[in-house]
Amino acid sequence: MTAYRIPATGDPGLQPERTSLSWVRTSLAIAVNALLALRAGLVAGEPALLAVGVLLFAAAGAAVVVGVVRRRQLMGELLTITPPRGVLVGVALITLVASAAGVASILVEGRP
C-alpha cells in the first residue's frame, strides 16, 4: 500500500485534531495496560510481565509520535491520506501484545 496524497484544497477542518486525539487515546490505553502489566509483574515476581510492561510503555510513546506526525501530514499542503503500512501493522501487533499482557496479568494475580 503506497501513500495516497492529494493537494490541500483549503481548510482541513477538525480532521487533523481528531486524528491526533485518537492517537493520544490509543497511547493512553496502551500506557494503562503497561501499568497493569508492570504491577502484576512486580507483585507476582514475573520478569516476563515486567518486560512486556516496558515494551508497552515504549509503544505508547511511539503512538504519541505517530499522532503528531499524522497531524502534520493532514495539515500540510500535500495531504497524506493513508498512514504507512508499518504503522498499521505495528498498532495491530501492539494491540495483541497488550491484550495478552492483560490476560496474563489477570491469570498471574489469580494464581495462589
Rank of each mutant, 00 (worst) to 15 (best):
R5E: 08
A8W: 01
A8D: 04
T9E: 14
T9V: 14
G10Q: 07
D11P: 04
P12Q: 01
L14D: 12
Q15D: 13
P16K: 02
P16L: 01
R18Y: 10
T19A: 01
S20L: 15
S22E: 08
S22H: 05
S22D: 10
W23M: 10
W23L: 09
V24M: 09
T26P: 02
A29Q: 06
I30V: 12
A31N: 11
V32S: 11
N33T: 15
A34W: 03
L35C: 06
L35V: 06
L38F: 01
L38K: 11
R39V: 14
R39A: 13
A40N: 06
L49P: 07
L50V: 15
A51W: 08
L55D: 15
L56Q: 12
F57T: 13
A58V: 05
A59I: 03
A59K: 06
A59L: 00
A62E: 11
A63L: 09
V66F: 10
V68M: 07
V69Q: 01
R70Y: 01
R70W: 06
R71M: 07
R71K: 09
Q73C: 08
G76L: 06
E77G: 13
P83R: 14
P84S: 05
P84E: 13
V87E: 01
V89I: 08
L93C: 05
S99L: 11
A104K: 04
S105Q: 11
V108K: 15
E109F: 14
G110K: 07
R111E: 12
P112A: 12
